[in-house]
Amino acid sequence: MSEKKAVGTRQYIATRIVQTIVVWFGIITLNFFIFRIMPGDPRGTLIAEHMPPEVVQAIALRFGLDQPIAIQFVLYIVNLFRGDLGESFSHYGQPVIETIFAFRFWNTVILMGTSILIALIVAIIMGVIAASRRDKVIDVGSTTVFLVTYSMPVFWLGLMILYYFGFILRVIPLAGTITRGIVHVNIFHYIADYLWHMTGPLVVLTLSFIGGFYLIMRDSVLDVFTQDYILAARAKGLKERAILYGHAMRNAMLPMVSVIAVNMPFLISGATITETVFSWSGLGLLTYNSDVANDWPVLQGIFLFLATVAVLSNFVADILYLYLDPRIRY
């Protein structure tokens, strides 16, 4: 890399860092105000009808809800940089950090991470195979199947799986991350029980993810097939398998970096509907419950975390491009 190019790259990275910080600040500001302008009042969660006015006032004071919005915003920013995201309204008095990260974060990361990983592997393999056999049965068949699963509403698919496999066939549990009320004899028993409970939501999420990944991979491989270097590889007499996996697939993977970056927030946010259908206690379900309960601090915490991951993953993807594709220079 010439010195001129290196300087350009450094400038690009520095610019992206500044942009990322500015965007992040914009997001945390929006993150505060968006909940103040949406309908609903958190005191609806905190304050039951029969609470006397003095208690209503005491609760408002405790959570700073009596302060002007500008003061609330300053407090929010100051506390944010102290690592204090406040206390949950609906988990009365519990620190938001604990509400989010104690166990729900891990439930979501495990569920979403596994489903995205499986979906990516299946989509990449099937995308390459379908592209290499364009318009053949396997191409048309897999495209049709994955378009159908991609188009199906996840709540409907989830309920069908719950009904047929959970209720009729009794092969998966109807709710939760573990069997309720049992004492697991050891860690392996716990893991097996956990994975069994993960089956339903995992199938739903994997099916819903595969379609998008598959179509991008297939199109990407088809695009690579039109490139001159594929023609050159064929002209050199390389075997089709070597061309497919050694040249076509590797180059077609580049757009998948963007896809993975775009999907990173899902890894954290969870799948609200799927988690709700299967009572999977993750961040998606927490988002739903917090929204219903107008639990602003928890929603702010989740969205802040989500936005941070989204901004960072896009930044990392942009930087990765520099190293994955030697043609990209700034």
Partner: peptide, 20 residues
């Protein structure tokens, strides 16, 4: 007595019907 969290109304009815 055990209080179980089952989020959706559909799931709760299925859980009751299944004996869960």
């Amino acid at each position: 007595f055990r209080i179980d969290v089952v989020i959706g109304q559909d799931a709760r009815i299925l859980a009751m019907r299944a004996g869960d």
